[in-house]
Computed example of a mutant assay.
Amino acid sequence: MKIKITLIVILLFSLAIKAQDRKLDSTAITSSIHTYIENFFENNFEAMNSSLHPRLAKRGFNPDGSLSEDFPPGKLKELMATKPKFELRHQQNTIDILGVFGNMASARLRTGYPNQRWTEYIHLLKEDGQWKIINVFWEFSPKNN
């Protein structure tokens, strides 16, 4: 009987640790995405880049439906040097974690400017204990949404 109780306690303890790990991962994933989008809008490349994997692939559909050019980190830096700043207090960023498996995760980010909103699907990987964004694909929302 003592062995059964000990096994149950160990099982419950390991489940509690696993749930704690998932919560920590969810918090870190959300934080990485916030770092990316908030600093993108504020034109702070160095802070944004801390959440990006060096092999980032970012692209999406232009408003006319054509596929955009690729935006690796260096190209994002160029873009951010020319676009207007959009302060954090005006941003409306919503993040939904869609799934986590091992060292990979998927999330949906709803974001944009007041007159132009879009959704980004984001893939992240956990490398050296940190969640980094490796893939972003976006599509603009219809104007009436």
Rank of each mutant, 00 (worst) to 15 (best):
L109V: 11
I5M: 10
E139N: 08
V100H: 03
F137V: 09
K2E: 13
I134A: 10
D128L: 10
P142L: 11
P84A: 02
S68T: 06
K23Y: 08
K126A: 02
S68A: 13
T82D: 12
K132E: 10
M80S: 05
M80Q: 15
I97F: 03
Y121E: 11
L98E: 14
A16K: 02
P73F: 03
F40M: 01
G129L: 10
S51A: 11
N62L: 14
D70Y: 13
W138Y: 14
N93W: 07
Q91D: 05
E38I: 06
Y121C: 00
K77P: 00
N145P: 01
N144K: 06
G102R: 10
K132W: 07
N93Y: 00
E120L: 06
S50T: 15
R59S: 15
S14I: 11
T35D: 00
K18D: 05
R89I: 15
V9T: 08
Q116N: 14
T35K: 07
K83R: 14
N44I: 05
P54D: 13
R22T: 05
E42C: 13
N49K: 01
Q91R: 05
D25H: 06
L79T: 14
S51Q: 00
N39D: 00
F140L: 14
E38T: 09
G112Y: 08
K126C: 02
K2D: 12
H90P: 01
L124V: 06
N39F: 10
L7H: 07
E46Q: 12
D70L: 13
G99P: 08
R55N: 14
G65V: 06
L56Y: 01
I133N: 04
I8M: 04
I33E: 02
S106E: 14
K75G: 04
P72H: 13
P84C: 03
K75Y: 10
K143R: 04
F41M: 00
A81H: 07
A47G: 02
F101S: 14
Q92D: 15
F40N: 02
Q130I: 04
G74I: 05
K18I: 09
I97T: 01
E139D: 09
L76D: 07
I122C: 02
Q130P: 03
A16M: 01
W131C: 05
P73Y: 00
N44R: 15
N103K: 10
T94Y: 08
L88D: 07
R55P: 00
E69P: 08
V100T: 13
L11P: 03
Y121T: 06
M1W: 12
F101G: 13
S66E: 15
D70P: 00
A19K: 06
F101R: 14
E42A: 08
L11R: 04
N103Y: 05
K77D: 09
R22I: 12
L11S: 12
T6Y: 13
N145L: 13
F13A: 12
D96F: 07
L67A: 15
L56A: 01
D128H: 08
L125N: 15
A57N: 13
R108M: 13
Y36E: 01
F101A: 10
E42Q: 14
A28R: 05
F45H: 03
K2N: 10
F71T: 00
K18H: 12
